[in-house]
Amino acid sequence: MRIRLRVWRQRGPDVPGKFEVYELEDVSPDWSFLEMLDVLNLRLVREGKEPIAFESDCREGICGTCGFMINGRAHGPLKGTTVCQLHMRHFSDGETITVEPFRARAFPVIRDLVVDRSALDAIMQEGGYISTNVGSAPDANSIPVSRWAASRAFDFATCIGCGACVAACPNGSASLFLGAKVSHLMLLPQGGPERKRRIRKMLIAMEALGFGGCSNTYACEAECPKEISVEAIARMYREAWRAMFSHSEE
């Protein structure tokens, strides 16, 4: 396959970036998008040029490290797929592909396609945890969890924190991420005791970190590689109302 890549090159956070065009001749349809970039980077290094900076870790779609925009879409055009799991067979021969970093106020560009997503971690530090005393392992059935609750909680727990929802959102909002984390914890008994504090602190953190708010366009749901439903966002609001209009028992 022949591929013409337009890649966003930016040397640092405060320098202006621009597109650089690369022609690739023998692209195998079995390569993943990242493998294609690896090959291109080898070539660039051999030519004595600066390789393209991008992030990846597991390369099997489960860690959330990879991610950038391909033709304006977070993780590329394929539904429910991270960019490390997107293969070149989904593009056509001779295609021009535009690659850009995730863009949002809370995600400043570090270099090329690498953005700083630590703001998502900062939200998690505010309430994305449970507090419990540790000791010997409790009996498996001492905390009953219905099968339904377990599987719903798991649906939301599949969020890998990649930030594609923020990148796709016209407001750079982390609502789908936040909703997924909150929903995952609230559906399980372990998440119960800190419910109100959690939603309050996480929402305040999201605003303070420069994320926008949700305007219910659902662009996030369409781009999420784990296909998290916007039900997570409805649940986020529900948690907020609940915390707002009831006494705190914490």
Binding site: M69, E100, A104, R105, C169, G172, Y218
Partner: peptide
């Protein structure tokens, strides 16, 4: 106003998902 400020730098390749 808030939502616009959250969006940051604009995409050069614009794809309207919704």
């Amino acid at each position: 106003a808030r939502n616009w400020s959250g969006r940051g730098e604009r995409y050069r390749y614009v794809f309207w998902q919704t």
